[in-house]
Design a binder for these strands. Structure first.
Length: 154
DNA sequence: GCCAACGTTGGC
DNA sequence: GCCAACGTTGGC
């Protein structure tokens, strides 16, 4: 069982958009970074849980929890010339990019903002909080996961 | 909108 | 395989 953090720009896709799908699975497409791809392809398992993080917005932070319901498979948006995620180097034989399916688990009662998370001692090692950290799929340590769950319950 | 920090591309 | 140039991310 692994824990993750999924970044999304709420203007493009927010926790409310996922919630509105009422538990229906959604594919997490558009990941175009090798490190993030490899994490999804190699380490992300069905049943894993992840934080839903809002980036590039007024109050960046953790806003909810999702569950991985399908392991990595080819990201078909890479093959679609109409898609903004189209990659001419991807093909049926060599899809290059993968995606997973997730479903909505819960929305936190309050946003755990990036600003706030930075003040929590137990999270000082968290990848998200490192300078220059841009990875859109991040592994989260179990201790960090539990700490954040506790903070979200307060 | 700025810009630091990364990641990727492509010429050599 | 190096590295300059370019593109992107994402906080502020």
């Amino acid at each position: 069982m692994n824990y993750w953090l999924f970044k999304s720009e709420p203007d493009a896709f927010s926790i409310d958009d996922l919630k509105a799908m009422k538990g229906k699975k959604d594919h997490w497409d558009g990941i175009r970074n090798y490190q993030a791809r490899n994490l999804m392809r190699d380490d992300m398992k069905k049943g894993d849980l992840g934080f839903f993080y809002h980036s590039s917005c007024k109050v960046p932070g953790i806003v909810g929890i999702v569950e991985v319901v399908r392991e990595a498979y080819p990201d078909f948006t890479a093959l679609d010339p109409e898609s903004k995620y189209y990659d001419p180097k991807a093909s049926e034989e060599n899809p290059r990019w993968v995606m997973v399916d997730v479903k909505f688990k819960k929305k936190l009662k309050k946003v755990l903002s990036l600003e706030y998370l930075r003040t929590v001692d137990e999270l000082s090692e968290m990848l998200l909080l490192r300078k220059g950290s841009r990875l859109s799929i991040q592994p989260v340590m179990e201790s960090q996961w539990l700490t954040i769950l506790e903070l979200s319950a307060e």
